[in-house]
Design a protein around this nucleic acid. Structure first.
Lengths: 145, 145
DNA sequence: ATTCCTGCAAAATCTTTGCAGCTAG
DNA sequence: CTAGCTGCAAAGATTTTGCAGGAAT
């Protein structure tokens, strides 16, 4: 069982355990956010789902993304232009590196993100529940043009 | 001359040098983003400006924030709920620590943010031009309630 | 059987745009 | 003077909401 299929199962179980119903539409949405490597927008998710469920509505996608955010199983990235992308693949904190031209997003790992969070908790007296590390730049491909 | 007044002058000079006109409305907007310690929203800025310039329009605030963003003199923070706040006080990268209940924002410094950016550049082959480090949590005051 | 969920349309929110008149340089 | 800026209103874009019918448990 690959890590993606794993993520799907984990999220479904968490939904079921917290008393939420597992509808076909919901499963399809979870599958997409749990397996997409390209950080899709709500519109992207909507388009992909319509292949299998042509009658699904945008509102349903929004409602489910909201639900998944509320249980902490998808991360939301906001671009400088205001558009949002979603990432449901990882629970461990990681960096996003975003090309401001072509909007390609690459993940990067950093070993000591947890340490930083702990230090911030001590310094500021906030109880940290989430974090978002984003770098904006221009990818190698766009640099050529 | 305090650092806030300094920031105001720096931004005004940069605007002038790049051929932009210095209108009273623009000065008022720059003054607010350069000196506000509480990371105001566009609405906040609008409300504060109306004390001195009752006829100023929201559109003008938006246009000027857009301009200040485009020349890199204000940073935009986006909340999990989608609302935006602005910070024109610092140019050096720093962390924002945000209370998700009362929305209070605290700044935190971290010595090696530049090093991290350099490492990311090498690892990903992106030319990094901006970065955003945000921690979401609950502040001590909200924790009591 | 009973809640919760879906899908539709309408509403709400936030931001941008078009344009006529004004003003800084 | 005259290019750029402002203020108004309208349009655009994105996300949320209300509600009736339908589906999961």
């Amino acid at each position: 069982m690959g890590p993606d299929k794993d993520r799907f199962q984990v999220i479904i179980k968490k939904l079921r355990d917290s008393g939420h119903r597992i509808t076909p539409q919901r499963m399809a949405i979870v599958k997409i956010v749990a397996t997409s490597e390209d950080h899709p927008s709500v519109e992207n998710i909507y388009d992909r789902i319509k292949k299998d469920y042509p009658t699904v509505s945008l509102a349903t996608v929004y409602k489910n993304i909201l639900l998944l955010k509320s249980i902490g199983e998808v991360a939301e990235l906001t671009f400088p232009d205001g558009s949002n992308r979603y990432d449901g693949r990882k629970t461990t904190p990681h960096l996003h590196v975003i090309c401001v031209r072509c909007k390609k997003i690459v993940d990067a790992d950093m070993d000591n993100l947890d340490e930083i969070a702990k230090k911030i908790e001590v310094d500021t007296d906030y109880k940290i529940i989430d974090q978002r590390f984003e770098f904006f730049g221009i990818c190698r491909n766009c640099m050529k043009n």
